[in-house]
């Protein structure tokens, strides 16, 4: 039972949402020109990563809006959510999914503080 942040409504319970699979799979424009393999890849092939996953959700029992999210598939912790059409947020390579984005950024700032003092 996840807590999911709808970019339009804020944090809500998972029961209000429906998962929509991997994000950023654009429908090919030239469908007639595609080979069976290319079309098959569009319909069926997904990355299924162990780690950072860009995925779609819809706030089906809320505002009804689709949006994108970045979730770590091992820990189920979200890095971020963003509206359709917004740029895919970059995730630091050393993010292991064990912390939220805020916790990760707080920890990195601490270690990166130039005067060596914890902030």
């Amino acid at each position: 039972m996840l807590t999911i942040k709808c970019p339009w409504c804020g944090e809500r319970e998972q029961i209000e949402f429906t998962a929509g699979g991997e994000a950023h799979i654009a429908r090919p424009e030239n469908t007639a020109e595609l080979s069976d393999e290319e079309w098959g890849a569009y319909i069926y092939t997904r990355t299924n990563p162990k780690g950072v996953h860009y995925e779609r959700w819809v706030h089906s029992h809320g505002c009804g809006k689709w949006f994108n999210a970045v979730r770590h598939t091992v820990t189920d912790i979200f890095w971020d959510v963003y509206k359709i059409g917004e740029e895919k947020p970059a995730v630091p390579e050393d993010w292991d999914g064990a912390t939220t984005r805020a916790q990760y950024q707080a920890a990195t700032q601490k270690t990166a503080a130039p005067d060596g003092n914890e902030k």
Binding site: R27, R56, V58, W66
Partner: peptide, 13 residues
Amino acid sequence: LGMLEEWLQTEWP
């Protein structure tokens, strides 16, 4: 209706 919305919102906003 859900499918119509999905296509409209995610593919052809």
